[in-house]
Structures are given as structure tokens and as C-alpha cells.
Design a binder for these strands. Structure first.
Length: 100
DNA sequence: GTGTTGACATGCT
DNA sequence: AAGCATGCCAACA
């Protein structure tokens, strides 16, 4: 399997600064695999909770929260708000997106 | 080896 | 503006 890709994704997600968010496609693209947006999401979902990975900073390209309505989503919103990200309902302004 | 699934993206209606 | 349809790729059964 692509350990490289997995590692790259971890790197990218871990490199997202607080107060900023990045889309799955964005992360995948930065990792060097533009078509693996889904795989990024898959990695997030399969990730252990104890992981120090800021998965809550990874959202959809539209700024929508895929986990909206679920406990994890609430936690995600809570954390993002705590980090200074403006979360309107189940969405985030594009201005909060990570700009490399 | 085949078929289905998924924390997505993009385009068209 | 919102919703529907297609594409993409890797893991799982």
C-alpha cells in the first residue's frame, strides 16, 4: 500500500495551522495525489481517536462539515471554534481555508 | 478476482 | 441556490 501517501497525508494534516482548515482534496493535492480526496476522508474515519492528528481541520471543499449532525461533528465544530475558526451552522467561510 | 463502499470533487440541470 | 449525476482510487467482504 502507499505508505508514502499515508505518511504524506499525516504530514499535511499535521501542518495545518490552527485557525485554518483544509479540504480533503486540498490535502490530497498537497500530498501529491490529487485524486485521493476520498482516501483522505477514509484515513480520517479509520484513524484512532488517540491520534494527535488534527483531523477536525480537514473538511469538504465547500466548507461543509461532513460529520454535521454526529457527535464527532459537534466536537469538530467545538474545536474549530476554539481555535478561532468561524463556524456558521455546519459550514466554514472559505476565508478560513488554509492557503499554502 | 469481483463487487460494494466511502468524513470527496467537479460539472450540469 | 440547491440537487442530481459521474469520476476516482483504495480498502473490505
Amino acid at each position: 500500500m502507499n505508505q508514502e501517501f499515508t505518511d504524506a497525508v499525516y504530514q499535511i494534516v499535521g501542518a495545518i495551522p490552527a485557525g485554518r482548515v483544509a479540504s480533503y482534496g486540498q490535502v490530497a493535492r498537497q500530498a501529491g495525489y490529487p485524486r485521493h480526496a476520498r482516501f483522505v476522508g477514509r484515513l480520517m474515519s479509520r484513524l484512532p481517536e488517540g491520534s494527535a492528528l488534527p483531523w477536525h481541520r480537514v473538511i469538504r471543499g465547500d466548507g461543509g462539515l461532513p460529520l454535521a449532525g454526529t457527535p464527532s461533528g459537534e466536537i469538530q465544530i467545538q474545536r474549530l471554534s476554539d481555535e478561532g475558526v468561524t463556524v456558521l451552522g455546519n459550514r466554514v467561510p472559505k476565508s478560513c481555508f488554509w492557503q499554502p
